[in-house]
Amino acid sequence: MKTETIAIHAGNHVDEATRAVIQPIIMSTTFERGEDGGFPAGYIYSRSANPNRHALEHLLAKLEGGVEAASFSSGNAAGMSVFQSLEPGTHIIAPDDMYHGLRNQLKNLFAGILTFDFIDVNDTDVLQQHIKPETGLIWIETPSNPLLKITDIKKVVAIAKAKGIKVLCDNTFATPICQRPLDLGVDIVMHSATKYFGGHSDLMGGALITGETNDWWTKIRQVQEMGGAIPSPMDCYYLVRSIKTLPYRVKGHVQNAQLLAEYLEQYPNVEQVMYPGLSSHPQHEIAKDQMLAFGGMLSFIIKGDENDTHNIINKLKLFIKATSLGGVESLIEHRATVEGPDTKTPRNLLRVSVGLEHIDDLIADMEQALTL
């Protein structure tokens, strides 16, 4: 089936008792045993499995072209479950502009348990130099947050596989509508389902999707069940509902982002626009090769200082000054402020989650805000 069809049908099961077209929400935390003491419906306790979570995970696996998915209460919980699944002493290679929430997890929660290096994974020589005998995972994030760097997935996978190292790709910015890392050889794909999967800025979730069920995946499943950082049945229901429109929402985000990026690139007060759909992007050709579309996120650097960026944000009427991304409304933020004192993000950079408003209105709003 095509992606649009998968999004609508893969997460939905007609209720046998009522024949309801939309699968009901099963809030029960526990399930009745059969006369033989077994579990005839396959469910024991909601932390282990739930019909709504089963439907969501089936849908996520189909969307990414994987064999199984595990859903979590947030993207950070999904990432933490990966780190918890690794043997103590495992070395991780991660991007130098890795999403700050997961970077801080490694630095503040796993220091002394795991070792890690944050490097430019796009530099093949640097990547090779940092591989150690105990390296067990290369973590990539493409496009990256907030610099929109593009990692050559096939190149990294080739280097990793030659050394027996696993590769995980954070595909949150792209979604499976714009990029399918499992098809390019990645072992596991991660998502913050809060973002484009939810799509309406009103629920949280995270997901991991695997290309094969192996010992590592079994350990991740154990962490999910025993740790219990799972989404509620209600969150699963709403994620399944939201994903039904994901392919069409993302097409709108991509179209608006491309047009806004092209507008910003020619604006005299803008120094640089970071969007992989622009021919000026340093990895534009790689993005063309491995992405199906260029996504709905962009960042731009203004010709000014940090105070100027705040002045621009405060003049905007439609772009909401808020963290997060992937909702139907356009959001903008001064990313360095969010990331804290150790940020590597330029102080005059603004990150934009381009929404589904009419592009003429978005450009008009940006025009009046950028005018000094």
Rank of each mutant, 00 (worst) to 15 (best):
S74K: 04
S81E: 08
N108R: 12
F110W: 03
N108S: 11
T115L: 03
L106P: 02
S85C: 10
R103M: 13
G65F: 08
A78T: 06
N76G: 10
F116N: 01
D97N: 13
L102P: 00
S81T: 12
H100W: 11
G66I: 13
E68T: 14
M80N: 14
T115A: 11
K107A: 10
G75W: 05
G89H: 09
I93D: 04
G89F: 02
P88F: 00
S81R: 02
M98C: 12
Q105D: 14
L114G: 09
N104F: 11
F72S: 05
I93F: 00
D117A: 14
P95Q: 06
G101Y: 11
I113W: 06
D97C: 09
A78M: 09
I93A: 05
N108V: 08
F72G: 01
D96A: 07
I113S: 14
K107R: 14
Q84H: 10
L109S: 14
A111D: 15
N76S: 12
T115G: 12
Q84L: 14
A111G: 07
L114M: 07
Y99R: 01
Q84A: 14
T90A: 13
F118N: 06
I93W: 04
F110Q: 06
G89I: 07
Q105Y: 07
R103Q: 14
S85L: 08
D96S: 10
L102S: 11
G89R: 05
A70L: 15
Q105W: 01
P95L: 03
P95A: 05
H91T: 12
F116V: 02
G79H: 10
G101S: 10
M98D: 07
F118W: 02
V82H: 05
S71F: 06
G79L: 12
F118C: 06
N108T: 12
S73D: 11
D96L: 07
D96F: 12
H91F: 01
D117G: 06
M98N: 06
L109T: 11
I113Q: 15
G79R: 08
V67M: 01
S85A: 15
D117I: 01
D96H: 13
G89K: 02
F72D: 02
R103H: 09
D97F: 11
Q105C: 12
G75A: 04
Q105L: 15
I93N: 03
N76I: 10
V82Q: 08
F83Y: 14
N104W: 09
R103A: 15
N104Y: 13
N108E: 14
D97Q: 06
K107Q: 15
M80P: 00
P95H: 02
L109M: 13
H91M: 08
E87Y: 09
L109G: 03
L86E: 05
D96Q: 09
S74G: 03
R103F: 03
G89S: 07
A94H: 03
G75H: 01
G79T: 09
A69K: 00
L106W: 00
V67N: 00
Y99L: 11
G75M: 00
F72A: 01
Q84P: 04
F116R: 01
V67K: 08
S71I: 06
S85Y: 05
A77N: 09
L106M: 10
N108I: 07
L106S: 06
P88G: 02
